[in-house]
């Protein structure tokens, strides 16, 4: 199996879907001639032509709106937001239009909106956010956040084939830092299915995105201290894989929920609530959260380091919970 980077996996997933299905097309700012600000669509316009890889004006609302319209008529658009932060400019189209069209009028909206999210690159307040919580709160959407090249490619293919609007957040910090083997043959990663990235008996970490890697590092540290951690990668945020969450926590009796997103009202809160309600009798300690504090993402490296959860912070929380 070839080794590919996380970024290449996103690219390969889209390219294979475009080869497989003529109705798939890409639109976004600088995605065509230039190949995308992060070069995710490099070479696409050469291969698929200008009508399937479209350079748009700087108009997020129109990008998503036009994608919706064409999806209603059976095309399968993949709309790029250059940074996930700018998705806010298309908010109405996503949460009021795409999310509700099928419920209101029975019209399916098979589309993908993708973009790089997350911090760690000193991008400051407008280029570092983790906006998955904004959309996880919107019924009618699906939200996926892959952590590995395998999942990135498989979830992209599943997202393109899905008949609902899928918001696909790829972590920009992982783009070129994570590399692993990905099968050449066609496969998908089902939307709505979590994945146990490390199995263990003593404590469950429930996490996703870049924090999967920090959690795995923390789990290695704790292993040396005699605590056997399980790391569950949620992969899909909406709909959540409740079964996988509960199965793991029922087995270990301890739950550590880790998100890069800020603490309050986010995915972590939802996971914690599910565990508290449906695995209450199995718990041997308080459901614990590690998350960024409730602040915007600052620019200066010492501040950004203080903001971001990392392996050390996760390990510290895990030690406390283990000792409970």
């Amino acid at each position: 199996m070839p080794e590919v980077t996380y970024l290449e996996a996103v690219r390969d997933g889209m390219r294979e879907e475009m080869r497989r299905d003529e109705s798939v097309y890409i639109l976004g700012e600088d995605v065509g001639v230039y190949g995308g600000a992060f070069k995710v669509t490099a070479g696409f316009q050469e291969e698929f032509g200008e009508s399937r890889v479209i350079d748009t004006p700087l108009s997020e609302s129109a990008i998503v709106g036009a994608a919706i319209g064409s999806a209603l008529l059976g095309q399968r658009p993949i709309a790029e937001m250059q940074f996930a932060d700018f998705i806010a400019c298309a908010f109405d189209q996503i949460v009021n239009m795409a999310a509700k069209l099928h419920y209101r009028n029975g019209m399916a909206v098979p589309m993908v909106i993708r973009g790089p999210s997350g911090a760690g690159t000193h991008g400051g307040p407008f280029h570092s956010q983790s906006p998955e919580g904004w959309f996880a709160h919107t019924p009618g959407l699906k939200v996926v956040v892959p952590s590995t090249p395998y999942d990135a490619k498989g979830l992209m293919k599943a997202a393109v084939r899905d008949d609902d609007p899928v918001i696909y957040f790829e972590h920009k910090f992982l783009y070129r830092r994570i590399k692993s083997e990905v099968p050449e043959e066609d496969y998908t990663v089902p939307i709505g299915k979590a994945d146990v990235k490390r199995s263990g008996e003593d404590m469950s970490i429930l996490t996703y995105g870049a924090m999967v890697h920090q959690s795995l590092t923390a789990a290695e540290q704790l292993a040396g201290e005699g605590v056997d951690m399980e790391v569950v990668d949620l992969r899909t945020i909406l709909p959540l894989d409740r079964t996988a969450i509960l199965d793991s926590v029922k087995k270990t009796g301890k739950a550590l929920v880790v998100t890069e997103d800020t603490l309050s009202y986010g995915v972590g809160a939802e996971v914690a609530a599910i565990i508290s309600q449906d695995a209450f009798e199995y718990l041997d300690g308080p459901v614990t959260r590690v998350a960024a504090p409730d602040t915007p993402v600052p620019y200066a490296p010492p501040l950004e380091d203080a903001f971001l959860p990392n392996a050390e912070k996760i390990a510290a929380a895990a030690r406390q919970l283990a000792a409970y």
Partner: peptide, 16 residues
Amino acid sequence: FGRATGLCKGKGGSMH
């Protein structure tokens, strides 16, 4: 530079 003496105390950087 992202220093405490910056216009935005290092919270924003060049773009803010």
